[in-house]
Write a protein that binds this DNA or RNA. Structure first.
Lengths: 191, 191
DNA sequence: TCTGAAATTTTTGTGAT
DNA sequence: ATCACAAAAATTTCAGA
């Protein structure tokens, strides 16, 4: 019951040029004590909260808090801290979720796509999934024309891709820190 | 062509107890100069980069940088800054993308769902889209059982919902700051 | 592993260009 | 709008419990 979990599924945040991430031990899974969970929740809600305030909120010394937060990053619990940008404000008002189907299902096709899709212009996220669809690609483009071009140039026109179906996004919503609430440790209320 | 979408797409970060967000002027859209775009890109890659380093990177005084970053937040260009958490590490190793279809398409159903879905346990994001599907819900759960319960309790069993189709996520990928690269201002190369 | 206090760095306001 | 400078506040380190 203290067993914890199998493997690490997704990698993501890559720092630019300084001392941060590089999960030193991806398989290092101790179940996180309540203090860590609280820190995680706070940083999920406001990734720029100062170390001093974090320490106050969870009731530990600042230096201790610093160590714990650093440990969370090193262990890959906190993969990265990123600004959430309004696509409209940066000239990409047309958002879409594109369902991509591959044919043949050769491993090399998936591996190449997995490697390249995060770098494609306007890509916010991508999800390799089970079922009839192989990938969902979340993208923001400058216009409907640019969206069509994106699909044709980077998806349809790709070795292995059979079909891409585009759904315009009317509204994007973010979860509100519910990752760290409920279940996780059934013996505590919610703190 | 500059039409964009109906409303403001996503709200998100809720600060805990200090001076931040509350976009004072959501429709205040001046096209962002190259310096702002660079700041946005840097913060997208590392939301915790210090103001001093941001200033150095873009080549302006620290105090100026502070003003610009604050302005970006006030204008809603930067909607929030959030830690990206590994769901596995917080006891939610089963990730899924759930396609939800509504029947009847009553506005009240969508409005209620839009309001409630970000608070549902384990929800990372949700997307109201055009086409055959009405919503994609991105969720992380503690187990396959918990996923089934989530779908039954919060989606299928909801007024207006016709159908929910679940795709397990094998791997989640994040875009790499490509929102602020390429086109945006067609008259400049790329900065 | 945690702490408290010292050393260092960053944030933030002011006044001038 | 921008900058340089200085005071205030924060981060980070470290010796010791």
């Amino acid at each position: 019951m203290t067993e914890a979990f199998p493997g690490t599924p997704g990698e993501s945040g890559r720092g630019t040029s300084y001392p941060v991430p590089v999960p030193k031990n991806p398989r290092d899974d101790k179940p996180l004590d309540p203090t860590d969970l609280t820190l995680v929740r706070l940083l999920e809600q406001d990734g720029r909260m100062s170390n001093a305030m974090l320490a106050r909120e969870v009731g530990i010394a600042e230096s201790t808090c610093l160590v714990r937060v650093r440990s969370l990053r090193e262990r890959g619990v906190v993969r990265g801290i990123h600004a959430d940008i309004d696509p409209v404000a940066v000239g990409r008002p047309v958002e879409a979720m594109i369902a991509v189907r591959f044919g043949g299902h050769r491993r090399s096709h998936f591996e190449q796509f997995t490697q390249e899709v995060p770098e494609l212009p306007g890509v916010i996220g991508a999800y390799h999934v089970s079922g009839a669809i192989d990938y969902f690609v979340h993208v923001a483009t400058e216009s409907a024309d640019a969206l069509r071009d994106f699909v044709l140039d980077h998806l349809t026109n790709r070795p292995g891709v059979l079909h891409a179906e585009t759904a315009l996004i009317f509204e994007s919503l973010r979860g509100r820190g519910t990752l760290t609430r409920d279940a996780v440790d059934p013996s505590r209320p919610s703190a």
